[in-house]
Every structure is written in C-alpha cells, then in structure tokens.
Amino acid sequence: MDNVMLVYSTTPDLDTAKKIAQALVGEKLAACVGMMPGYQSVYRWQGAVLEASEVCLMIKTTKNQFAALSEKLVALHPYDVPELIAVPVTAGLPSYLQWVKDETSA
C-alpha cells in the first residue's frame, strides 16, 4: 500500500481528459484514470474569480511513476498551470492495490 497514490487533475473537456488518460494508461504511468465530467470549479486566476465546467481525473498510480506521469500530463495539458495533486493511499483492497502496482511496473 505504501507505494500507491491517487492523483487528481482537471481538464477543460472530455476530449482532453480522454487524450491524457489514454496516454497515461498506455505508457503504464497509471493503472486507471477515472473521468468525472460536470465538475464545477470556482477559482482565482490572475486576480479574477472565475468559474468553469471541467472534467476531474482520478489517476491511480505509484510513487515510482509519479515524476514521469507529471511530466507527461504537463506536456499534454492545455492549461498554463494544470492541477496536479497526489495523495498517498493509506488503505484499500489489497488485491486492487497490487493490481495498480502490477499495471504501472515497467
């Protein structure tokens, strides 16, 4: 469990979300990417308070793949400063966590 991470990001639309998800899973940087359309954000950017409808990504990966995943996500992402937040998984179904590790190993 100590190696599995859940990474969050948002994208402006479903096409961008799918493109990023396909690349991350295809390159074994993530085991799975969940896409949640209809995510509403209120945020401050360049001094203004803005609102946007986005697609939230829930990316399942490992600490070992985080640096490469970050690099790929930033390269594919249209935002100047994409959201990229990782949290460690502290508990979960052991067989699922093992699957994440297996699917992200080189």
Score class of each variant (00 low, 15 high):
Leu84Trp: 11
Val49Lys: 00
Tyr8Asn: 10
His77Arg: 08
His77Met: 09
Lys72Asn: 02
Ile59Thr: 07
Val81Arg: 00
Asn3Pro: 00
Ser105Gln: 15
Ala23Trp: 05
Glu71Pro: 00
Leu97Met: 09
Gly92Trp: 05
Asp80Val: 02
Ile85Phe: 07
Glu103Gly: 01
Pro94Val: 01
Ala48Glu: 15
Val89Met: 07
Lys60Asn: 02
Thr90Val: 12
Leu24Lys: 08
Ser41Gly: 09
Ile85Leu: 15
Pro82His: 04
Thr62Lys: 04
Lys60Trp: 01
Asp80Thr: 11
Asp13Gly: 05
Leu14Lys: 09
Thr104Ser: 11
Trp45Pro: 00
Pro94Arg: 04
Glu27Trp: 07
Ser9Cys: 12
Val49Ile: 15
Met35Gly: 06
Ser95Ile: 05
Pro37Asn: 06
Tyr8Gln: 13
Leu29Gln: 12
Gly47Tyr: 09
Leu76Arg: 10
Lys28Asn: 14
Pro94His: 06
Tyr43Trp: 11
Gly26Asn: 12
Thr11Leu: 06
Leu69His: 03
Leu29Thr: 08
Val33Asn: 07
Asp102Trp: 04
Pro94Phe: 04
Tyr96Gly: 07
Ile59Leu: 06
Gln22Arg: 15
Asp15Met: 03
Thr104Lys: 12
Glu54His: 08
Asn3Ser: 15
Pro12Asn: 06
Leu97Cys: 08
Leu84Asn: 01
Ala48Gly: 00
Gly47Ser: 06
Val7Leu: 02
Ala75Arg: 10
Val25Pro: 10
Leu29Pro: 11
Gly34Asp: 12
